[in-house]
Design a protein around this nucleic acid. Structure first.
Lengths: 130, 130
DNA sequence: ACTGTCCAAGTACAAACGTACGGGTGAGGT
DNA sequence: ACCTCACCCGTACGTTTGTACTTGGACAGT
């Protein structure tokens, strides 16, 4: 039912902070942005307004302060975004991207262990249903 | 050194075909696009021109036909694109995306086997060097 | 030579994006 | 009561993107 317009890159960064910090004022979101990604306070304000227009966030006034809250779960947005990327860049196939991530970006030993566990879990489950 | 402007979504789709079909005329690229993703011939032309402007493709005239060729390897573009996505949407961490792909998008049995092999290969290599 | 077809290349143009400024207004300090 | 600071909100504005039309020339068949 979504049919929200997709998030732009900038909006995504702000949305990420919004998910992490829960409902929060513009000031707080702005402060929580990664330092190397400095954007103007007003820019963050604009992004939040756009997030709301697009249906990804809601807001209420607490006194004179507007508090923004996410209306969409990260999982959903990630799904939509990743699906789109996989479609456009890999013709819809998942594995090439998985391969790329593991081989090209490299993962740590503990992550590798987690991955193995994940694979094994799926292997045993795969036997039963599909 | 790259510092090409990033590819837009539409450009990406065309680039993908360009990689697959090797050097090719606009007509061929247009024909090779997934049927459900119909875009006008002229639109493909525009995308190819933009790909060239951005440094992702080169072209030469063969008679009156312009032949486009990729100038960047898929791997490179994928790396840049995925890095950007991982940065913005996952704060730079790889595993959450890997997890998402495997769990949410689901992979087939044979892919799972491949994945296991991949994991095992990395496990044995990880012991030796880093 | 005339016509229809095909292509390159220039131009178009509205919407989305990234990024921000400026006016107005309330709240707090002095 | 006044000044200052913070914040909301409307507005702005150049660039990029998606999508295409159009003009003019080359080639192919008649």
């Amino acid at each position: 039912m979504g049919e929200r317009p997709a998030l732009s890159k900038g909006e995504m960064e702000v949305a990420r902070v919004l998910w992490e910090k829960g409902p929060a004022a513009v000031r707080a979101i702005h402060a929580a942005l990664p330092a190397e990604r400095a954007m103007d306070f007003a820019t963050v304000q604009t992004y939040l307004r756009r997030l709301e227009t697009k249906g990804y966030a809601s807001s209420r006034l607490d006194g004179r302060i507007r508090i923004y809250a996410a209306r969409t779960k990260p999982r959903t947005v990630i799904r939509e975004t990743v699906n789109d990327l996989v479609e456009r860049l890999f013709g819809g196939e998942t594995m090439p991207l998985v391969r790329h991530l593991i081989e090209e970006r490299g993962i740590e030993a503990d992550e590798l262990a987690e991955l193995r566990a994940l694979v094994e879990r799926l292997e045993s489950k795969g036997q039963a249903d599909d």
